[in-house]
Amino acid sequence: MSGKVVLYYFDGRGKMESIRWLLAVAGVEFEEVFLTTRAQYEKLVNDGALLFHQVPMVEMDGMKLVQSKAIMNYIAGKYNLYGKDPKERVMIDMYAEAARDIMDMISMVLFTSPDNKKDELEKVQVKAKVRTLPAFEKALGASQFLVGNQLSCADVNFFEASLMLEEVFPTILSSFPNIQAFQKRMKAIPAISKFLQPGSQRKPLPDDALRKTAKEPTSLTLT
């Protein structure tokens, strides 16, 4: 098992998707175990695989890793996606956290009741256009990367977030040319181009069946 990377989560995006993205960009092949019942989750807990009784969980390098941010930082550090010094790393964290905030907001709205969804999505769109995207647009006007002179997990996280924003708000990037150019550069990276192809391990936006499944085995256990 030590040479195999295995992901434990439900068959959807959630907190695992950004981990999938980082592994794909790093060129790391991985297998997935999809949790479809509460019993599967409870078995992981009873076997001692989940340190804090939470998923996602990644088996990697002989470890059972939990807490999504810790997992992503480990992958980024191991595969040279985490800057060259503490100053770059803190900037990477700042941009990465902002990207994940937007993705988390969208995910939460997609799992909310239909009655509130339209209003909540509008709030996400306003925040993205007024607060988040202008900061990324400015950063990408000064450099082809968000931090330093090489690709980092912040670039990967924001690229994922920008695609997710376009899925929900198709024209949201129309007034952000630097971000559009950034997307074009990212799509030209072979590992990313491969991950964007149909049949990859990238997951689609959640549908009703996935919402039901996600609530069953992992209720209150996502990190």
Results as ranks from 00 to 15, higher is better:
V124L: 02
V126K: 14
K127I: 10
K127L: 11
V130Q: 09
L133Y: 06
L133A: 05
A135Q: 09
F136N: 01
F136L: 02
F136S: 02
E137W: 01
E137H: 00
A139F: 02
L140N: 03
G141W: 00
A142W: 00
S143P: 02
F145L: 01
F145G: 05
V147S: 07
G148W: 02
G148I: 03
N149L: 05
N149C: 12
N149G: 13
Q150N: 14
L151C: 10
C153D: 10
C153V: 12
A154H: 03
A154G: 11
D155R: 09
F158G: 10
F158T: 14
F158N: 13
F158E: 12
F159I: 13
E160H: 14
E160C: 11
A161C: 15
S162E: 12
L163W: 09
M164S: 15
L165D: 06
L165F: 08
E167D: 15
V168S: 10
F169T: 04
F169R: 03
P170W: 09
T171H: 07
L173N: 05
S174H: 06
S175D: 15
S175L: 02
F176L: 02
N178G: 04
I179R: 08
I179F: 07
R185I: 06
M186N: 08
M186S: 04
K187H: 12
A191R: 12
I192G: 06
S193G: 15
K194S: 13
F195C: 08
L196P: 11
Q201N: 14
R202E: 01
